[in-house]
């Protein structure tokens, strides 16, 4: 139904093909969170994967010992900004799930502070997601989700849960926090899956 708005010409004619529809390139890194920023000491940090069969836990050192990768990815926020070729470091979820047995297909990520977000398991494996500790060569600051956040760059960035503390396997794709508050269950930026 799009129509032309009188007088609007815009600026960015040379649109970068790496930008999904409706996104604008930013150089800085905006912060979006629903509440206060929690303060978490890596010494107290623990990561849990809970399945129908039990719990697996890793402390900070055990998580790093799984093998930290360098990755360069583009990130896309539902509020219309994208950041290209960001350097991150983190542990791929493939390593975490190597010894996890589950018949459930969906994951609820849980964060310190109570945030949750849902992702299908097959979108977290095969090099698609990480537990990230560093961005742009620096440890993640608390406002950007430090000490550790989920990184799922092929989905809108609210899926990349800040202050992540664990994953709970689910038999069905139940909605997380933003997914209950107006945002899409899946969140593919290339399909503009922004809202309900």
């Amino acid at each position: 139904m799009s129509f032309i708005t009188r007088g609007f010409s815009g600026r960015g004619r040379d649109r970068d093909p790496r930008l999904p529809p409706g996104q604008t390139l930013v150089e800085d890194w905006p912060v979006l969170s629903a509440g206060p920023t929690p303060d978490i000491d890596p010494a107290d940090w623990e990561f849990v994967v809970a399945t129908e069969n039990g719990r697996h836990t890793w402390n900070w050192d055990e998580m790093h010992a799984l093998g930290v990768e360098d990755i360069t990815v583009d990130i896309h926020c539902v509020t219309h900004w994208s950041k290209l070729e960001m350097a991150w470091r983190g542990v791929p979820l493939d390593k975490i799930f190597e010894n996890v047995e589950t018949s459930y297909d969906y994951v609820m990520a849980h964060s310190y502070g109570g945030y949750t977000t849902n992702v299908p398991l097959d979108e977290l494996l095969d090099g698609q997601a990480w537990i990230a500790f560093e961005a742009d060569g620096e440890p993640l600051t608390p406002e950007h989700g430090g000490p550790a956040r989920l990184l799922v760059p092929h989905l809108y960035f609210w899926k990349s849960a800040k202050w992540v503390r664990g994953l709970v396997m689910m038999p069905s794709d139940d909605p997380g926090f933003w997914e209950q508050n107006g945002y899409n269950l899946h969140g593919d930026p290339w399909a503009e899956e922004r809202y309900w």
Partner: peptide, 8 residues
């Protein structure tokens, strides 16, 4: 939307 289809 601009006349050439560009959108922001």
């Amino acid at each position: 939307t601009a006349p050439d289809g560009y959108q922001a």
